[in-house]
Design a protein around this nucleic acid. Sequence first.
DNA 1: AGGGTAACAGACTGAAAAGTCTGTTTACCC
DNA 2: GGGTAAACAGACTTTTCAGTCTGTTACCCT
Lengths: 204, 204
Amino acid sequence: MDKQLKRMATMQRIQTTGLEIFYQKGYFNTSIDDILKELSLSKGAFYYHFQSKEEYFISIVQNLLFRKVYSSLIEPIEGQEDPLNKIVACFDDALETAEHNFLDYGFVLSNFITEFNGKNPDIMNYLQDILKVWEVNLVTALQKGKTDGYVDRHIDSEAVATYLISSYIGIRTLMVEGNSKMLRYKYIQQLRQYFKLIEYKEPA
Amino acid sequence: MDKQLKRMATMQRIQTTGLEIFYQKGYFNTSIDDILKELSLSKGAFYYHFQSKEEYFISIVQNLLFRKVYSSLIEPIEGQEDPLNKIVACFDDALETAEHNFLDYGFVLSNFITEFNGKNPDIMNYLQDILKVWEVNLVTALQKGKTDGYVDRHIDSEAVATYLISSYIGIRTLMVEGNSKMLRYKYIQQLRQYFKLIEYKEPA
DNA sequence: AGGGTAACAGACTGAAAAGTCTGTTTACCC
DNA sequence: GGGTAAACAGACTTTTCAGTCTGTTACCCT
């Protein structure tokens, strides 16, 4: 195989597996050996490609996590008509993947934010940047919804975006306890209710 | 000092400091030595009172965390008239203490749930029990609100309770990034909006 | 007052984990 | 096909940490 390609492939492999295990066990509770065992790879290989555990984790955040959050939670809404329904559909999709124990990257993100809060400001910045992109994009979608006649002009888009993200993070935290199907159903139900307040009303 | 009292006092001291440091640094990232250094106490003293780090943590959850969650988030609502306004006031209070970097126990709880998820089922049970008590109590308050004429009879109390807890946990996760005053304001604003849907409406 | 036990001190042990270093294999180039 | 550097293997070092163990102090009871 081409060496450049091989290098890329190996790094990808190490990062992908790392994200899964860091998510499952937490950063501080996961050893490099845990990941290498899963990969049947040696220490030498790892430290050939990455300088340290921290630099390795940051590369995962930037390369994998950011892109995944973008493609699963931002792109499906970006530039679309009818933002409210798109948001509901997008959140519901993400929660469904979470139900089947796959990675739900919005939650992975908030999980890491919780873990690194107050412990590693450097990593926190990278994580919060993703959160900001998400928030900015929701605000943009809501504003566009106003001009397109889908969203009530009087609402505070930033407040709504904040409320949306917080409720999403919260419901995913609750979903870890198991009864996730019911929780998802209840959550989406209440989200639709909430959106009734926000949607454009025909002027009387 | 009476020996029994001294024993209680020392254990309390160890537990209180432990909760603070575990919250700040995380369970897995905190060593017993960290806590003992803060207390100027020895290993011998610690292991005289507690069997292991795990048993120690569980005692903190049951003795301190449970009671604090109860007194800060459950008791203020329990049995009161006008549950919706009581809930807003209670959440606002808790978020205000969080702003000043004091311990907000609802968040401490969800923090630990995030940290122990998938890692320690035993501890998870103790944590989720607290969450259940919180939820049950909100449901009860909402139901009582229905009979007392404060809450719309058509709402799904369990769904609302779930939504409340999740949004609270979520907003606290977001508040770690600093701009907490604004976040709190936006959150409470949207919460009031949401409650307009739920409150009792005079029959036409 | 002094024996006994609870409460505590702190050195020690063993395991785990991040990172290093030296040696080996594999792929590319001439 | 042999030289070279990239890619990897794995033993080793150093630190950290949970838990142990032996010794010491403080308090209580008779």
